[in-house]
């Protein structure tokens, strides 16, 4: 790996972590020039070095969490859901504002996906009410794509529902795919030939097509590599900065500082 390649990879990893790379890359370049040694010997792999640096600069990412300021876009009130004799959701309330990201966490079977499906209107609760202001985009945990259609055809099909022309839908889909480190979705073949992670990227891109106001994302990063996972959060923050209300079901408890608020569905946990 040449110095330039290493510095480029390092800069990309910093950007993925929402850290401005200019000063840190310049500092690393100076150090490498002065030492005359190979970057892998001095710093190690660029991704690992970026993680170390960002962790040490954790205060720089603390600004990520924000208090809600926009109007409520999603209001779920007193949601109760039973499967047989088992009550999965016990009067859950969820409110998400424009420009806010909420993470839903909880143990397996605690009703995270059920709550999201209720909020999307895909299943009915036993009682409770959901109010959505604006348009809705939903990314399921799996499924949601057609095995024998290509990514471009998915973009056209979903985009047509949103009122986009073919050209617009394809362009928007390809741009969103590139932001998730999937640069050429048009040449990837039909969905059944995609890897699990790439298929989830397709799912995520489809959720955001047509610029919906509320995004419901059910563990959309299944199968993502680490870089794509970071790209995913970059995309979530772009949506949030654009005034979208974003809900992410997640089981990665170590990443909760990425969301503005957290709803824990674990039985007995404070709501």
């Amino acid at each position: 790996m040449t110095v330039d390649d290493w510095l480029a990879a390092f800069a990309a990893e910093l950007r993925r972590r929402r850290v401005d790379p200019a000063a840190l890359v310049a500092e690393a370049a100076t150090h490498l020039r002065d030492s005359g040694r190979a970057p892998l010997q001095v710093f190690g792999p660029p991704a690992a070095y970026a993680v170390t640096l960002v962790d040490s600069l954790r205060g720089a990412t603390a600004e990520l969490r924000r208090a809600p300021s926009g109007e409520p876009r999603l209001e779920a009130t007193k949601i109760i859901k039973r499967y047989g004799r088992s009550t999965v959701l016990h009067g859950v309330d969820l409110r998400v504002h424009a420009g806010e990201t909420v993470a839903i966490i909880g143990a397996n079977g605690s009703g995270k996906s059920t709550l999201l499906r209720i909020c999307a209107g895909l299943i009915s609760p036993d009682s409770g009410h959901v109010r959505i202001r604006g348009t809705l985009g939903y990314c399921p945990q799996d499924g949601g794509t057609a095995d024998f259609l290509t990514a471009d055809e998915h973009f056209v099909l979903v985009g047509a529902g949103r009122g986009s022309s073919r050209t617009e839908a394809r362009a928007q889909g390809r741009t969103a795919a590139a932001a998730l480190d999937w640069p050429r979705p048009g040449t990837s073949g039909v969905a059944r030939q995609l890897s699990g992670g790439t298929r989830q990227k397709l799912n995520l891109v489809l959720a955001g097509l047509g610029d919906p106001d509320v995004l419901l994302l059910d563990e959309p990063y299944q199968g993502f590599d680490n870089g794509s996972y970071l790209d995913f959060w970059q995309q979530v923050w772009r949506w949030r900065d654009a005034g979208k209300a974003v809900v992410v079901v997640t089981h990665r408890l170590g990443e909760l500082d990425r969301a503005d608020a957290v709803l824990d569905l674990t039985p007995g946990s404070p709501r």
Binding site: Y138, G143, G144, T145, L157, G161, L206
Partner: peptide
């Protein structure tokens, strides 16, 4: 049967 998983998404997208 193949359409069952994508049709709810298409409904949400405006169809």
């Amino acid at each position: 049967n193949a359409a069952r998983t994508i049709e709810p998404r298409l409904r949400l997208s405006g169809y």
